[in-house]
Every structure is written in C-alpha cells, then in structure tokens.
C-alpha cells in the first residue's frame, strides 16, 4: 500500500479544480438550503445551463467566452425564475421534485440526438476554451515533488476558481449579515411567521433562488473551463447531491462551510478511492478478489458518500465543526 501516493493525490484533489467546482455549487446550495431552507435538488441544471452557454457561445455563435459568461448568468437566473414561479408558493417538497426533474429535462434535451448538431449529443461540445488557455499567465507545473503536482493549466483554473470562491464568500457574507439575510433565515425557520410580519416571502425566496442559481452557474463555467469540454454526463443528478454532501460537511448556513466542505470532501473521496483501488490491485490484493474486484472498489467511495450524507444530516447538520448550541435546538 503506497500511502504517500494516496496522500498526494488526496491533497491534489482537495485543492484542485474539482474541489473549486463543488465549492461554488455548494455556495449556491448554501444560499438556497442553508440560509433560506429551499430544497434545490437540481443544482446540476444551473451548472449545465452555464457550462453549455460558454461552450456554445464559441462553437455555435462564434463569439467570445465573455459573451457566454453573460448569457450563462442570464440563463441561470431565468431558470431560477421558471422553477420558482410554479413551486415557491407550495410546500418544500414540490421545489425539490421540480428542480430534480428540470435538471433531468435539461440534461436529456441537451443530450438528445435530435439536437446533436448544436450540443453534440452524448459527446458534448469541445474546442472552445482557446481564449482561456491563451490567457494563462503560468508556465510549468507546481507541486511537491514525489507527492503531487498541478499542471500550469490546473494552476490557472485554480487561480480563477479560488478567486471566484473568495468573491462569492464575500458576497454571501455581506448579504447574510444584512437585514435581507435575516429575512431569508427567518423564512427558513417559519415562512408564515415572516409573512405575518409584512415581508413578501415569495419575492425573497425567488431572490434567493436566483442568487444561489447564479453561484451554480459559476460552478458550471468552471466545469467547462477545467475540462475544456462539456457533456451531459458531467451534469448527472448526483452532482447536485455531492454538492449537498460538501455543504453538510462544512456546515449549512456558514459562510465558509462550502470551502471547508469541498476540501475535506475531495480529500476523503480521493483517499478512499485510492485506498480501495490499491487494496484490490495487483496479483495478491489486500482484499481478496472474491470479496471485491477493482470495479467494485471504485464504488466503495460512493457507498461511503451516501452513508456520510445520511449521517451528517442526521447527527451534524451544522457541519463537522458545528455549534452545539444550535444542535440542541434542532433536536426538538
């Protein structure tokens, strides 16, 4: 068992581009679920709309990535409005059902062979980030020799990504300490009470849905920039739930929760994946093949992830560094 290799790749993933993506997605979910109590189970849909926007801006409309960014943000906001109108006056489960359904509608439509001319069907869209590549100021890779390294492109993606994360956290911090943020938290606790105090709950929920969706769009941009491609399989339903796990590890309704969560999540997931992959590799694997073959080993981290999501939500919704005082109230 090569623990150094496992540790290296875990550190690389914990701060790498993928962690950035899930961090941004979770920041959006934090605004939705953590602060406002809205169950958006379709964050992948927001990400997809944005990711395809910058891809198609270049491939179909032959404009710049920046146009794609603007269009992506607008489309994400529009999607939030479209989802909010039928559901935000209803019980919480309806939003959950409609968001998970619409993320799937978007995915299946974009993946459809009938539109493959535009969206490339199952294969998605490629060759659109030359502008982003050209702007890369770095050359050469960064890392600790023998442990891990990031390529120059990775470092560029991470710079942009973590800057976006910092900016997003600042915005969330400023919003949530304001009376506006207080209304959102109040809605999470009891929306009828807030309504009885003269606040337009529907409008606040809609604003929260749009803002969280825009953070989701930022995550979507990072997906397409980081992979230099977008495809329907990048935005499967589970992406949203990984982001929920990220959020709950770091703690819902905490500004830095998604950041802490993303780092820990990717560290653990990568380490688990590495461990089980090594434990089943080779001629005389640590775990006998009859119990676990390499294919099954790759599933172990998701089995742990599912368990982790359940246990976190049950025992530590405030995150693993959560506040005991708050926990005591939840138990009621």
């Amino acid at each position: 068992m090569d623990f150094v290799a496992i540790l290296g790749s875990a550190i690389q993933q914990a701060f790498g581009p993928t962690a950035v993506i899930y961090c941004l997605a979770a920041i959006g979910l934090n605004v939705h679920f953590g602060y406002t109590g809205l169950l958006n189970f379709g964050q992948a849909g927001f990400m997809m709309v944005a990711g395809y926007s910058i891809a198609c801006a270049v491939t179909i409309f032959a404009t710049s990535l920046w146009v794609g960014v603007v269009v992506g943000l607008l489309l994400a906001a529009l999607l939030a409005l479209a989802l909010g109108v039928p559901t935000l006056r209803l019980r919480a489960d309806y939003l959950a059902i409609v968001t998970i359904a619409s993320a799937e509608i978007i995915r299946q439509t974009v993946a459809a062979a009938s539109f493959s001319e535009y969206f490339g069907g199952q294969d998605g869209v490629t060759d659109f980030i030359s502008g982003f590549r050209d702007a890369n100021p770095y050359s050469g890779s960064v890392g600790i020799p023998g442990l891990f390294r990031w390529s120059a492109f990775d470092i560029w993606v991470m710079t942009v990504g973590w800057l976006l994360v910092a900016l997003s956290c600042l915005v969330v911090f400023l919003l949530m300490r304001s009376p506006w943020g207080r209304v959102l938290k109040s809605i999470r606790e009891d929306e009828n009470a807030v309504r009885s105090l003269g606040k337009n709950v529907y409008a606040y929920k809609m604003q929260a849905l749009v803002i969280g969706g825009i953070f989701g769009a930022l995550a979507g941009f990072m997906v397409s920039l980081r992979s230099a491609a977008v495809g329907p399989s990048f935005f499967a339903t589970d992406v949203t739930f990984f982001a929920y796990t990220v959020l709950l590890i770091g703690g819902a309704a905490r500004v830095m929760g998604p950041v802490v969560g993303a780092i820990i999540f990717w560290f653990l997931i990568t380490a688990l994946g590495g461990f089980f992959s090594q434990a089943t590799a080779g001629a005389d694997p640590l775990i006998p093949e009859a119990i676990m073959d390499p294919n099954q080993a790759s599933l172990m981290r998701f089995i742990f992830l599912g368990l982790g999501l359940m246990l976190l939500m049950i025992f530590r919704p405030q995150g693993i560094f959560g506040d005991r005082r708050e926990l005591a109230i939840d138990a009621r």
Partner: peptide, 9 residues
C-alpha cells in the same frame, strides 16, 4: 395558535 418563533435566530 401554534406559536411561530424563529428557532435558530
């Protein structure tokens, strides 16, 4: 009737 305080505020 069922008091609505905002528990985690």
């Amino acid at each position: 009737q069922l008091t609505k305080v905002l528990s985690r505020l």
